[in-house]
C-alpha cells in the first residue's frame, strides 16, 4: 500500500507538459524529496509523457494519459498509463550522441535520459494498455 496517491489526467498534447511538470514537482516536494531529486523526477515524467504523445499516440490529440504519483516510505513511484501503441523494447538501442549528431537526428534519447534520471524504469503492456513506472528511492542519489 502506498502512503499517498495523487492522479492527473491529461489529453495527449504537448501543451499539457507544463501542467505535468507542476503536478510532479508539487507532490514530489510534498513527499519531502530533496530539490535535485524532485527536478530529476519532473524531467523524467516530462520525457515519458512526451514519448507517449509522440510515439504511443503518434501525435494524435484527444487521447488520454493518466499520471499517478504514489509515495511509499522508501520510494516515490510515478505511474503512467495510456492506451496507445505498444513500445517495442526489443528494437530499442541505447543512443550514441556523436552518431546522432552526424545523422542530424533531433530525437530518440528520451528513454536514455529517463533511465539516467531515475533509479528504475519499468515498462509493461497489458490488456491493450501501456504502463510505465518511474521509481526514485529516498536514499539513492
Amino acid at each position: 500500500m502506498s502512503l499517498t496517491e495523487h492522479s492527473l489526467l491529461i489529453r495527449s498534447t504537448t501543451d499539457n507538459l507544463d501542467k505535468v511538470r507542476a503536478f510532479v514537482e508539487k507532490h514530489a516536494a510534498a513527499a519531502s524529496f530533496p530539490p535535485a531529486a524532485v527536478e530529476n523526477v519532473k524531467m523524467a515524467v516530462d520525457e515519458a509523457c512526451a514519448n507517449v504523445i509522440e510515439h504511443a499516440y503518434g501525435n494524435e490529440t484527444g487521447h488520454v494519459i493518466e499520471i499517478s504519483i504514489l509515495t511509499f516510505d522508501d520510494r516515490l513511484v510515478v505511474r503512467l498509463r495510456d492506451q496507445g501503441k505498444k513500445f517495442d523494447q526489443t528494437t530499442y538501442e541505447e543512443p550514441d550522441l556523436a552518431t546522432f549528431v552526424r545523422q542530424k537526428k533531433s530525437g530518440g534519447f528520451g528513454v536514455h535520459l529517463m533511465r539516467k534520471l531515475m533509479d528504475e524504469v519499468e515498462y509493461r503492456h497489458l490488456d491493450g494498455q501501456n504502463e510505465t513506472l518511474l521509481i526514485k528511492y529516498r536514499d539513492a542519489s
Binding site: 507538459l17 524531467m43 516530462d46 520525457e47 512526451a50 550522441l97 546522432f100 549528431v101 552526424r102 542530424k104 537526428k105 533531433s106 530525437g107 530518440g108 534519447f109 528520451g110 535520459l113
Partner: peptide, 14 residues
Amino acid sequence: SSAGLGVFMAFIEE
C-alpha cells in the same frame, strides 16, 4: 528537455 537538446543536435553538423 530532450526535445530542446535535439534542436541543437539537428543543426550543429550542418
